[in-house]
Design a protein around this nucleic acid. Sequence first.
DNA 1: ATTTTTGTGGGGAATTGTGGGGAATTATGT
DNA 2: ACATAATTCCCCACAATTCCCCACAAAAAT
Lengths: 152, 152
Amino acid sequence: MARFIGNIDAKMDEKGRVFFPAVFRRIIQKEGEEALMVRKDVHQNCLVLYPKSVWNAQLDEMRSVLSRWNSKDQMVFRQFVAGVDELPVDGNGRILIPKRLQQLVNLQSAVRFIGMDDTIELWSKEEADALLENPADLGENIERLLGGGNAL
Amino acid sequence: MARFIGNIDAKMDEKGRVFFPAVFRRIIQKEGEEALMVRKDVHQNCLVLYPKSVWNAQLDEMRSVLSRWNSKDQMVFRQFVAGVDELPVDGNGRILIPKRLQQLVNLQSAVRFIGMDDTIELWSKEEADALLENPADLGENIERLLGGGNAL
DNA sequence: ATTTTTGTGGGGAATTGTGGGGAATTATGT
DNA sequence: ACATAATTCCCCACAATTCCCCACAAAAAT
């Protein structure tokens, strides 16, 4: 399985094109992936890029579990697929971010790719910086969630 | 089988015409589909577009479950089938949404196509946005339905 | 230093999306 | 039945976007 690691800054031009970092492209090619899927992150103000095979597997699994005739099931499926787009890659290895998504997560010129293991996140540089500027509680959170200690 | 993916915003003009997104048109042509069927969604305030073959499969499925000789079954089948229309496509690749359906799901100018795997949904943009605005329960629902955990 | 790969930019053709003018058809009221 | 209105359909024009191509700067590798 793909393992995307690292932060890469890039610039989006006026046409909404961004160079897809070579590090990530190599991984994708090695895995034989042809396409990427994008969607807005459920919680954060950023885009999430999925290799297509990962996405399709998800979709198949959901379809097999969720009934088309059950309104709640169908709504879950809808919310999952609504907002997804296939991401075209041009001859230069650039991706074109649909305008709809640019506006949704407020992408201007400076952007940042963040490797998140099996997916890649795309942030506006400003917001990404803001996130990392105050990592104050990180240690605390990690301790709470993973520490598992019971010292007083 | 056709796989419609993606979200496309479009505008409906005063005549009720909407450009049918090129992405979807290509898929339909490749599959050799000739016609589209429309229906209001059973639960939601949106229209569902079926390639004719998908529609037919759907009917077959219903027929296999619903008895032709049971009056309630037959009524359900009747109501499902009665609400459907064939969707004409004009020379420019636009579809004309019948007035009846426009009003039924409250379509004004701004609309959104949502690829839902083998069907396409057509929403008013406002309502589509509303869908995505509260993704709070989505994660929860997915976890419940697909997580396969063994929570109590 | 020179070559190769990676990243940026832009021009312009082709496709996609939007709008509107009416002719043909269908509905509606009297 | 007829006149009128509304709708559907078919055609054209144009704006916007996307796609495809090429040129070149910057960084990395040889």
